[in-house]
Design a protein around this nucleic acid. Structure first.
Lengths: 140, 140
DNA sequence: CTGGATCCACACCGATACTG
DNA sequence: CAGTATCGGTGTGGATCCAG
C-alpha cells in the first residue's frame, strides 16, 4: 500500500493530471486515485473524526482526536482535503487565530464507503493476521 | 475504526525492534492496516481482476489483464495476497510450469467493499479533480 | 494557536538481468 | 512460463526549528 500508496501519487508523473491520448492504460483510474488519497497515513482518520464530530473542529482539537499525528502532517492532510473539496477551512481572525475545519457535503458522502471498509477490516483483519502468523511459524 | 493511528509500518525502524520511549500508540488499527494493503499500487486491481474472473487465472493472463504491471510487482503482490490468505496459488508441475491464482472465500468477501469504493470514486472523483483544477487556475 | 520550512530515513516501485 | 536479485529514483512522513 499505502502505498506508500499508490498511485500516480507515488511514482507516476504528477503534472499531467489528465490522461493523454497515448495512455491506453488509464493512469487516471478514479478508484486508483481515491485509494492514493485514502492510503495516506492520516486521511481516513481525519475524515472519520470530522464525520463523527458533525460540526466544525479546531486544529488543536483535531490533533487531540488523531493521536500520534504531527502538526505538519495534520496541516498537510487538511490542505489536501480542502483542495479536494472534501473539507472546509474557516479562520476566525482573532489573536491568536482560531481555525475550524469541517466536512463538506461531498466529504460527508465519503463516510459511508469508509464505514463499509472499516466493517470489513474489523471483521476480517484478525483472520489475515493469523494467516500471516502461521506462515511465520510453519513455513512451507 | 481508524483511531488506532500510528503503526510501525511505513516509517518506523524495523530492524531496531524496540519502540522508543514516546511510543504508546495503540497496537494496530485494522482499517489502517487494510488501507496500507489496498494502497499498494496493484493490490486492488488484482483483487478486482481475480474477482471478475471468478475462476483461476494464470500468471501471464493476470499480467495481460493488469496492464502496465511488471512481472516483479505482479509476483510480489500475489505473494502478499497469498500470505494474507486472500489468494490461492496452485502450481501444475508441468514443463514449463503453469501457476494458477484465484481468490479465496475470504478474498471474495473483499470484492463488495471494493465495489463500494469504486462506485464512490466513479461518481465523485470528477468533482474532486475539477475542484483542484479551479485552485490551479484561480489561485488566491 | 496555527502553521511553514528544512532535513532525512525509509519504503515503494520500475527497469534490467538472470534462473529453472 | 514463472519467477528472483539487484540497483536506483522518487515520494511520504517524522523531527525540529522558525514565524505570524
Amino acid at each position: 500500500m499505502v502505498t506508500g500508496g499508490n498511485q500516480i501519487h507515488k511514482t507516476a508523473p504528477r503534472g499531467n493530471a489528465r490522461a493523454r491520448r497515448g495512455d491506453l492504460f488509464t493512469p487516471a483510474c478514479p478508484t486508483r486515485k481515491l485509494l492514493d488519497r485514502l492510503g495516506g497515513k492520516w486521511t481516513s482518520m481525519l475524515v472519520k473524526v470530522l464525520g463523527d464530530a458533525g460540526t466544525e473542529v479546531r486544529f488543536a482539537e483535531l490533533q487531540r482526536r488523531a493521536p500520534g499525528i504531527s502538526r505538519k502532517m495534520l496541516a498537510q492532510t487538511l490542505r489536501d482535503l480542502e483542495a479536494d473539496g472534501l473539507v472546509t477551512r474557516r479562520v476566525e481572525p482573532t489573536v491568536p487565530p482560531a481555525v475550524h475545519y469541517a466536512l463538506t457535503p461531498l466529504g460527508t458522502t465519503l463516510v459511508g464507503p469508509l464505514d463499509t471498509l472499516r466493517d470489513w477490516a474489523e471483521t476480517h483483519m484478525g483472520t489475515i493476521d493469523d494467516h500471516r502468523q502461521r506462515l511465520v511459524r510453519s513455513p512451507a
